[in-house]
């Protein structure tokens, strides 16, 4: 099977700071991958490069064999680490927006999930709490039948019920031809839903392995192994 995401010597510098240092990486379809690393390790930079929000300083990044562009953006569903919902728009207007731009958007799915969380479609985002907006944004992103989901810190700073909703949504949405990349530093929370993990530190990939292999070989959880690898 060909990789859905592939990096070859991918490097990104911000001025003199090197955020990613010659990263080689390949993610196959049908996997749920944890992109794990401390803050500032390069997780967000990698995800932004995959989305074409940044351009590489050297090396290349391919999505289903192509450089980031309109074609790759059509198959990537991206949850940024910030809120992109305009305050003046209502949830319903945003559903219209997603429906217009993404042929793979399943409006009925989004409506059902909004209903399940009790989010009124007529309410404007400006009137929603921060947590509600985060949930609404996740619902929009997960209601696409994308080939690659890039979720940047989806569970950072949410309450346990929301975290369970997010993980449940990821599991229920699982599709053997799609991959999910979840970046986080809260490993224990996501460990059970992951197929494989990538440890990233100072812009380099330290470990890329399946969760089962780590537990078998190390006899400990990924969380414990992570602490061991990253202990300072």
């Amino acid at each position: 099977m060909s990789a859905i995401l592939e990096c070859r010597g991918l490097t990104k510098n911000f001025g003199r700071v090197c955020a990613l240092d010659a990263v080689d990486l390949s993610i196959e379809p049908g996997r749920v991958v944890g992109l794990l690393g401390p803050n500032g390790s390069g997780k967000t930079t990698l995800i932004k490069l995959a989305n074409g929000l940044l351009t590489p300083s050297a090396g290349e990044l391919l999505i289903a064999g192509e450089k980031p562009g309109p074609a790759s953006k059509a198959i990537i569903s991206y949850l940024p680490d910030r809120n992109f919902l305009p305050d003046w728009m209502s949830a319903r207007q945003m559903l219209d927006f997603f429906e217009d731009f993404y042929p793979d958007f399943r409006r009925d799915k989004a409506t059902e999930m909004l209903g399940r969380l009790g989010i009124e479609e007529t309410i404007r985002f400006g009137q929603m709490s921060k947590g509600t907006k985060e949930k609404a944004q996740l619902i929009l992103v997960m209601s696409r039948e994308a080939g690659l989901y890039l979720l940047d810190e989806p569970i950072g700073g949410v309450d346990p019920a929301t975290r369970d909703f997010i993980l449940d949504t990821i599991i229920r949405n699982y599709n053997p031809s799609a991959s999910v990349v979840i970046s986080t530093h809260l490993i224990a929370d996501v460990e059970n839903v992951l197929d494989e993990v990538i440890f990233i530190n100072s812009g380099r990939i330290v470990v890329h392995s399946s969760v089962d292999e780590i537990r078998e070989a190390q006899g400990k959880s990924v969380d414990a192994y992570f602490r061991e690898v990253f202990k300072c």
Binding site: V32, D168, I171, R172, Y174, N192, V193, D195
Partner: peptide
């Protein structure tokens, strides 16, 4: 598999395996 995975809160590939 999907329902089992959701119910147990684990990865569907793990359930499949």
């Amino acid at each position: 598999v999907r329902d089992l995975a959701a119910e147990l809160g684990v990865n569907p590939n793990t359930v499949q395996r």
